[in-house]
Amino acid sequence: MTSRTEAAAGTDRSVRPPLLRELLLVAGLFLVYKAGRQLAAHHTGEAFRNAHRVWDLERAAHLPGEGAVQSPLLHHDLLAHTADAYYATVHFPATVGLLVWLYLRRPAHYVWTRRVLAALTAAALLLHLVFPLAPPRMLGEAHLIDTGRVFGPSVYGPPRTDHLSNQFAAMPSLHFGWALMAAVALIAATRSRLRWLWLLHPLLTLTVIIGTANHYWLDAAAATALLGLALAVTPRPHRPAAVAAVRPRETPRPAERPALAHVSAAGAGR
């Protein structure tokens, strides 16, 4: 048993990439994420036209109004403030924490997760460029409240003066896409019976992004579809423990061989 554990640990160490290179790659991923969102930041007219299209499509599909999720938040200031704080503070730290844990404990799954996140982010940035979209909090037809501005904290300033973020990059929602990938990665990398509870993270994230009027339902659907494509084209890692657990073919013990020879000789004498 000990030898199998040591073999698995040795295999894990062999697939763990150099730390400095990974720090640069992950930092580059986050920088590209922040910088790439600026590419479509000034397509205001197109962003609002697309917002009307998305809103009408959701109503045609009989999806529940985003207001049904926001309404309970508006009745409790603390709940609204908590949702805004979750939106503002959990997204990046949760993703970084996931990558750090995987790097230290599940290196093969870390490489897989980093590749999937990079593919998802690249596809999302391309969609942000070709389909700029104003969030529902900006769409008068939606009759929703910008909870970040009313209750705080908010990660966005006035659209005309906010040069640090692209507020017209609503579709897909990388808040939801990254949260869903975090749950997928942890479920794949662990064996606890309770690991499926990690799905509560994307579920809570979905509730927050809709309730704070930062995203439409279809933003989360688009993120899910892109994540599915990224997972489909990225090879899954092999679990070292599974390989180490394969039992070698059993051979007769030395003490048993004379007895077997004796039986064979007796049979031949008959």
Rank of each mutant, 00 (worst) to 15 (best):
P158W: 07
T147N: 07
L127R: 09
W196A: 06
L133G: 00
D146Q: 11
M138Q: 07
G152D: 11
E141C: 06
L206E: 03
L164I: 14
R114W: 12
M181F: 05
V184D: 05
V155G: 13
E141V: 00
L120E: 11
V111R: 15
L144Q: 00
V155K: 14
A185Q: 08
W112N: 00
S154P: 07
Y216T: 00
L144F: 01
R115G: 04
G211S: 04
V208G: 03
L197V: 06
A169L: 10
G148S: 08
V150S: 13
A134C: 06
L125C: 05
A108Y: 08
I210F: 03
P153E: 12
R115D: 06
R160N: 11
T113Y: 01
P159S: 08
T205Y: 00
Y110V: 03
A182I: 15
A169N: 12
A119F: 12
F131G: 01
A169V: 06
A170G: 01
L120Y: 00
R191G: 05
Q167Y: 02
W198G: 02
L186D: 02
P159W: 13
L174W: 09
R160D: 14
H143V: 04
A185D: 03
E141R: 07
R106C: 05
S165N: 15
T147K: 03
P107Y: 07
R137K: 14
P172S: 11
A122Q: 09
R195S: 02
P135R: 07
L200M: 02
V150M: 14
P135E: 09
L194A: 10
W101P: 00
V111I: 12
V184L: 09
P107C: 14
T121Q: 09
V208K: 00
L127E: 09
P159V: 11
L197N: 03
P158H: 12
V111T: 14
R114E: 04
R114V: 07
A118Q: 09
L186T: 01
L144E: 02
H175V: 00
H201T: 10
A142I: 03
S173N: 10
G211I: 04
I145V: 15
R115W: 13
A179K: 05
G140L: 13
